[in-house]
């Protein structure tokens, strides 16, 4: 279940950031990974909310700045 969740988030990140799924790991992070800028941060939120039918608060949006952050934030919402 968790693996499935991680994989789906990986795919979303890859789509939005325009990079390969295999490149996404613990070091994938806002401002460090090419493509992960503030506009795409919003696009990521929109895609995650749509994919998992969740709603993220601004505090959560501001705090999820790495791939592992996103996984734990989404996990806590489900």
């Amino acid at each position: 279940m968790v693996d499935n969740l991680e994989q789906r988030i990986r795919e979303i990140l890859a789509d939005i950031l325009g990079i390969d799924v295999a490149q996404i790991g613990d070091s994938t992070a806002f401002d460090r990974t090419p493509g992960w800028d503030s506009a795409n941060h919003i696009n990521l939120v929109v895609a995650l909310e749509d994919e998992f039918s969740i709603a993220l608060d601004v505090a959560e949006i501001d705090a999820m700045l790495t791939f592992p952050d996103i996984v734990s934030t989404v996990e806590a919402k489900l």
């Binding site: 979303i12 789509d15 325009g18 929109v46």
Partner: peptide, 11 residues
């Protein structure tokens, strides 16, 4: 009609 579909098509 999602951002993922749209971005995939645009790319």
């Amino acid at each position: 009609p999602t951002i993922r579909s749209a971005r995939a098509l645009r790319v």
